[in-house]
């Protein structure tokens, strides 16, 4: 039985069809990465999984008692809100000091307990968010572009930390990522999204799929093209094998 399963899910956002016919299942202990251009519904998919959005059609099934830890893409804490790391970890439920220390340790954020959230660096902040998600002892950890705003060494370190979490705690991991080297090296499965699931499977399979190439191109395993496509939602101009892009257009 999968931890969480989406069947034929449609999501509408204010009259706009953000997702259609999405099938997805996450199994115990696997790392699944979602890639796709901006506006392709990656965040919408995650928000539907955690219950922040209701699908307009289809079902989201969670296995009984499944615990989901969520790390949002961005979290801006108003400067007027005084909040220590410790207090933040205790929202909405209190945890023992030991549990908090353990979570911070697993997230690589030792010693930050008494710092103010607004004083943390980008990398420390993301690790504290990760620690908060770990406090639930999640079966599934959902991360939305966890390395937004981090430099390259910083994001590499964070991805190593995430992999460490899977080894230590055995949580399945579902994340959105723009960094293709991570997708290709660390994921068990990749889902390529563009309003619908274009293609999915093992990283090597997806990398050679025509739908994927249409979105991201083929050069350097697609890494360069991925960055170019960040700025270009209409994936028709840069793809080197542009004759194949039709497979992945919005319906």
């Amino acid at each position: 039985m999968s931890l969480i399963e989406m069947q034929n899910v449609d999501v509408r956002l204010g009259g706009h069809q953000a997702l259609s016919h999405v099938d997805l299942a996450i199994n115990k202990g696997e790392i699944v990465t979602i890639v796709g251009p901006n506006g392709s519904g990656k965040t919408t998919l995650l928000r539907t999984l955690i219950g922040a959005l209701k699908p307009s059609r289809g079902t989201v099934k969670r296995s009984k008692g499944v615990r989901i830890g969520y790390v949002p893409q961005s979290l801006s804490i108003d400067a007027t809100l005084p909040l220590t790391v410790r207090r933040f970890l205790c929202l909405p439920h209190r945890h023992s000091t030991q549990a908090m220390d353990d979570a911070l340790h697993h997230a690589g954020a030792n010693g930050l307990q008494d710092r103010q959230m607004t004083d943390l660096s980008g990398g420390q902040f993301q690790r504290v968010l990760l620690a908060r998600a770990l406090l639930k002892k999640p079966d599934l950890l959902v991360l939305d572009e966890p390395t937004t705003g981090l430099d390259q060494p910083g994001s590499a370190a964070l991805y190593r930390q995430i992999e460490q979490v899977r080894q230590d705690l055995g949580s399945a991991i579902l994340m959105v990522s723009h960094e293709l080297h991570v997708v290709m090296s660390a994921s068990d499965r990749v889902i390529c999204l563009n309003g619908h699931v274009c293609c999915h499977g093992a990283p090597e399979t997806v990398a050679s799929a025509p739908e994927y190439r249409a979105l991201f191109g083929t050069g350097t395993q697609g890494a360069l093209a991925l960055y170019r496509h960040d700025h270009d939602h209409h994936h028709h101009s840069h793809a080197e094998e542009s004759h194949e892009h039709g497979a992945c257009n919005h319906a």
Binding site: I50, L91, P92
Partner: peptide, 18 residues
């Protein structure tokens, strides 16, 4: 506690069942 969580971020609240 729920109000404070929702004040921080609505999605964090949803993920905690609030």
């Amino acid at each position: 506690s729920p109000l404070l969580t929702a004040t921080l971020n609505p999605d964090l609240a949803y993920a905690s069942g609030i």
